[in-house]
Amino acid sequence: MEAIRIERRDNIAHVTLNRPAVKNAVTLAMWRDLSEIFARFAGDRHVRAVVLRGEGRDFSVGADISEFDTIRDDRRKSADYEVAVDACSGAIAALGKPVVAAISGYCLGGGCHLALACDFRFADLTATIGIPSAKLSIIYGVHSVQRLLALTGLANARRVLYSGDRYPAEQAMSMGLIDEIHDDAVLAAERFLQRLAANAPLSIAGAKYMLNGISMGAGALDLTKAQQLIDAASDSEDFEEGRRAFAEKRPPRFRGA
């Protein structure tokens, strides 16, 4: 059985962590595979948006700790492991297309790391969110801490990281860890992304790039690249199509070019 399953539904890709027997614990190989999957989506015009989900009852309990005795048993191996984890979240965040984490059950540690890298987090009432790094003597990675801080604010970020506690869906939403709660998080995510997928891909890519850069702190946003994205959108066929559709009072048909 593939540890990660990819399905296409129209122009929305579903990426499913597929190890339900171990609550979708993420192996080192999976971190690396996820990086490649999301990097490939960047060049696929047929994919306009992505749902990231877990098979079965849980999103993910996080990293597969059963591997740690062999792949993370000293400082060098731990550093290499963190490089792979950061590359994965970086690939998700860098994808210039909207990504929604659809969360059920446990979303802990590395699972939360994945969810934080997404643009939105939709959950159902079974969701439980937490980062137990303080209970394992692990320091969460810098980029994930930055994303956590941007979403929750300083006081809640401290609470999450210092305590290692788990938060039920409604409390997690009040803290900024979850955006919306639905009976069916996957269905809600798909319907939401269908609406976004009808909008101009270049506009979304540019907005995502700037928002991510600004939210990650001083110096994270490359102003030159941001201006290049703005200029490319201004010169695009989609911009002409948007103007024509507005004048003709019809929905635009964007192609991402």
Rank of each mutant, 00 (worst) to 15 (best):
V50Q: 14
V50L: 13
A155P: 01
A127T: 06
S133Y: 10
A63S: 14
A91F: 07
G206E: 14
I230T: 07
L136A: 01
R191Q: 15
I65A: 01
A172N: 05
R48T: 06
A220N: 10
I12P: 06
F122C: 04
G54D: 02
S215H: 09
A25H: 01
R121D: 05
T224R: 08
R195C: 08
F239R: 12
S133A: 14
H46E: 15
L196H: 09
V22S: 11
V22N: 06
I92F: 08
A127R: 10
R244Q: 15
L151R: 15
T126Y: 05
F239K: 12
A134E: 04
L17C: 01
G176L: 12
A185R: 01
G43A: 01
G43N: 14
N199G: 14
V15Y: 02
S234V: 00
S60M: 11
S236R: 07
K135W: 01
S163R: 10
R166L: 02
L28K: 03
A197E: 09
E180I: 12
R45Y: 00
L193N: 08
I129Q: 00
R195Y: 12
D231Y: 08
R244C: 07
K77D: 01
A42Q: 11
Y140N: 03
S66G: 09
R32T: 09
H14Q: 04
I139S: 02
A84D: 12
K23L: 08
L28R: 02
R8S: 09
C107K: 06
I204K: 06
A42I: 04
I6M: 13
R244P: 00
A185P: 15
G164L: 03
D124L: 12
E2I: 04
G62S: 09
A155I: 06
M210C: 10
H143T: 11
P201S: 02
G164N: 05
F120Y: 13
R243D: 10
S215G: 14
T27D: 12
R40M: 10
L34R: 06
A257N: 14
I92Y: 11
I139L: 03
I4H: 04
V61S: 03
G141Y: 05
G56L: 07
Q228G: 09
Y106D: 10
G176K: 12
P251N: 09
